[in-house]
Design a protein around this nucleic acid. Structure first.
Length: 585
RNA sequence: GGGCGUGUGGCCUAGCGGAUCAGGGCGAGGGGUUCCUAACCCCUCGAUCGCGGGUUCGAAUCCCGUCACGCCCGCCA
């Protein structure tokens, strides 16, 4: 109801200002500090003071007097406090919130009639997913969930870089070396842990072998790349053998988060269908194209980039960005909007891509990037090639193990006699363990650098996933024990008179606005912050207001409805950030 | 050298022009459970928001400068 209230206040305030013949371009509507009773406030008086030749508090009073609360949705009264005009909600605001939030889908926004493709992760299929890039699937999945919940028609894509030099090296190494030549056993019984050993072996060979041997290897690698460029079916198959296996393993790892994709889009697709060549041809025709040092380049100085972007090598083969151009035009053909989640190291490339897309005549306003910083180890960067780094699988395992210990240590002093069995313990360990990892990452602004430390990443204390998950479990516990749910029509919202209950209901009322703001800015961490605020509000209510043992049946029913609304709110907020909502824990 | 990003109490973090807004959390110290799960709650200690200027009625928030850290500046991806 918060969004509706905000809209109606904006209209009322605009009309009031117009009636006073004052400018209404900047309404200055904001949320007042927590300890004030008003739901919304306006700071227009500051800006109008000069124009009216009066002090801000007086201006505020004049404006407030010009608004008649009657007929304005959810508005009960307008008053002032110093220079601020404050807007208070009426009973219907809370009553409608309580009723609306009874729906499982509470918070989901209206259909935006817009399709959007969210591309995330897109890690080269060279080996196991490590924590350094784990931010990508976690943030990416949350962004996709968020847009979906905000009413967009979302597809999730993983762009597979299967045409680059790295994959050619990998393919050559896989075909060349015998398993007996590999030094270590796979770190884990899954295909990408097995095959990455060939990749590392190959890279090691190229860096250390005799020049003649390296030259021969390079010739083979080049022939693979040229085969791909020439549309040679055998080359696709050779590379595909490696790519599909490794990708399959990575997919299994990502599924643990869980992060799932609607489509894995291979870049070779845009070589095979001729669109990459077509893009290059069109670029050649553009006014920004230059042919220097035997290679076709784009002069992007007018777009703010110092150096030229090479889009065709001297041997006529395409580069990553050229293929990505064809890829993005394909996105534009099939979707209204495109969001890409990518590491800060790709930022320059993304900017060049966007400039080139504009040169090709695309409307790049349809494209948005979400940039995140890599997670580094205290001793430096993680690297698949060098085999340094913490694997996401290991992080998840460790987190689940610690969560399991936590559950087991709590079993003895559980008050609730719901007899958790082995399956429950396993379920809770997974929900909490994986939830904690995701929450830790999704709750921070992605642009902030993170240095990975086990204990910090696996903290189950307050302001973490379990803190919020526990609120959901409490809701379920109460609803479970209440034999019947009251009829919607039988609920009297007025029975919720305690400050803690009203505070909770007001927090619930804000949820759709939080979803809207987070989706508009592609910032799932806003939802994570909200879950924490929500949990605090709920815990306050839980402490102050007994539900099942409430003496007055009307109070009990109203509180029960509030718990139900709370459950939907927290469950949906958690689902957006990809954290499981346990029924018990 | 240039570009982009980050800089909030011992540590992590929210806020990113508006009201005693410097908010949470961890850590430290002290309390709370015959009552819907104490992975909870309450209290105390602790920050002039990297530093210096400027704009503004008002700046952690905007501008300029400066320092520190990260990322990038390939006919790699």
């Amino acid at each position: 109801m918060f969004r509706q209230f905000r809209d109606s206040v904006a209209v009322a305030l605009t009309e009031a200002l117009e009636s006073l013949e004052l400018p209404s371009a900047d309404l200055g509507i904001e949320e007042p500090p927590e300890d004030l009773p008003a739901t919304l406030a306006s700071s227009v008086a500051f800006r109008l003071a000069g124009e009216m030749g009066a002090a801000p508090p007086q201006v505020a009073q004049t404006v407030a007097d010009a608004i008649d609360p009657d007929g304005v949705d959810y508005l009960s009264a307008v008053d002032t406090q110093g220079p601020y005009v404050n807007f208070h909600t009426n009973d219907a605001y809370l009553a409608d919130t309580l009723e609306t939030a009874q729906a499982d889908s509470y918070g989901r926004l209206e259909d935006q009639k817009t399709s959007v493709v969210v591309e995330h992760t897109s890690a080269n299929p060279t080996g196991p997913v490590h924590v350094g890039r784990a931010r990508n699937p976690i943030v990416g999945d949350a962004v996709a969930n968020l847009l979906d919940f905000a009413g967009y028609d979302v597809d999730r894509h993983y762009y597979v870089n299967d045409a680059g030099r790295q994959m050619a090296v990998f393919t050559w190494a896989y075909e060349t070396f015998d398993e007996t030549a590999l030094e270590d056993e796979p770190a884990r019984d899954r295909v990408e842990y097995d095959l990455v050993r060939y990749y590392r072996k190959g890279n090691h060979f190229l860096e250390n072998a005799e020049p003649a041997e390296v030259e021969a290897a390079e010739a083979e690698i080049t022939s693979i790349l040229q085969g791909l460029e020439a549309g040679d079916e055998a080359a696709y198959e050779r590379v595909g053998t490696v790519v599909d296996q490794v990708l399959g393993g990575m997919k299994d790892c990502l599924a643990r988060l869980p992060a799932a994709f609607d489509e894995f889009v291979k870049e070779t697709r845009f070589m095979r269908d001729g669109s990459t060549t077509a893009v290059a041809d069109r670029l050649k025709e553009s006014e920004y194209a230059v042919y220097e040092e035997d290679a076709w380049q784009l002069d992007l100085s007018a777009h703010g980039f110092e150096k030229n972007l090479v889009f065709l090598r001297s041997d006529e083969t395409s580069l990553y960005t050229t293929r990505d151009l064809a890829h993005h035009e394909w996105k534009f053909d099939n979707y209204d909007r495109a969001v890409t989640v990518l590491g800060e190291d790709h930022k320059l490339q993304a900017g060049q891509l966007q400039a080139a897309l504009e040169i090709l005549g695309n409307d790049t306003d349809r494209l948005d990037d979400v940039i995140y910083s890599y997670v580094n180890l205290p001793e430096g960067k993680m690297s698949t090639r060098r085999g340094t780094g913490v694997m996401l699988d290991d992080l998840l395992d460790e987190s689940i193990d610690r969560a399991r210990e936590e559950v087991e240590s709590r079993l003895d002093d559980r008050i609730r006699n719901d007899d958790l069995d082995a399956d429950d313990i396993d379920r809770i360990a997974h929900q909490v363990g994986i939830g904690a990892v995701r929450y830790d990452i999704v709750s921070k602004q992605p642009t902030k650098a993170i240095t990975f430390e086990w204990d910090r990443a696996l903290d189950f204390e307050a302001q973490s996933a379990p803190y919020v998950q526990y609120v959901h479990a409490r809701c379920c516990g109460i609803l479970d024990e209440a034999d019947t749910m009251p009829e919607l029509g039988a609920i009297d919202p007025a029975a919720l008179s305690d400050p803690a209950a009203i505070d909770l209901l007001r927090t619930i009322a804000r949820f759709p606005a939080v979803v809207e703001a987070a989706a508009d800015e592609h910032k799932p961490h806003i939802v994570a912050t909200y879950t924490r605020e929500f949990a605090e509000a709920f815990n306050g209510f839980y402490r102050e207001c007994p539900v099942l043992s409430a003496d007055d049946p009307a109070v009990r029913d109203a509180r029960l409805a509030l718990v139900s609304a709370s459950k939907h709110t927290v469950a949906n907020a958690l689902s957006i950030i990809g954290v499981a909502a346990p029924d018990s824990m």
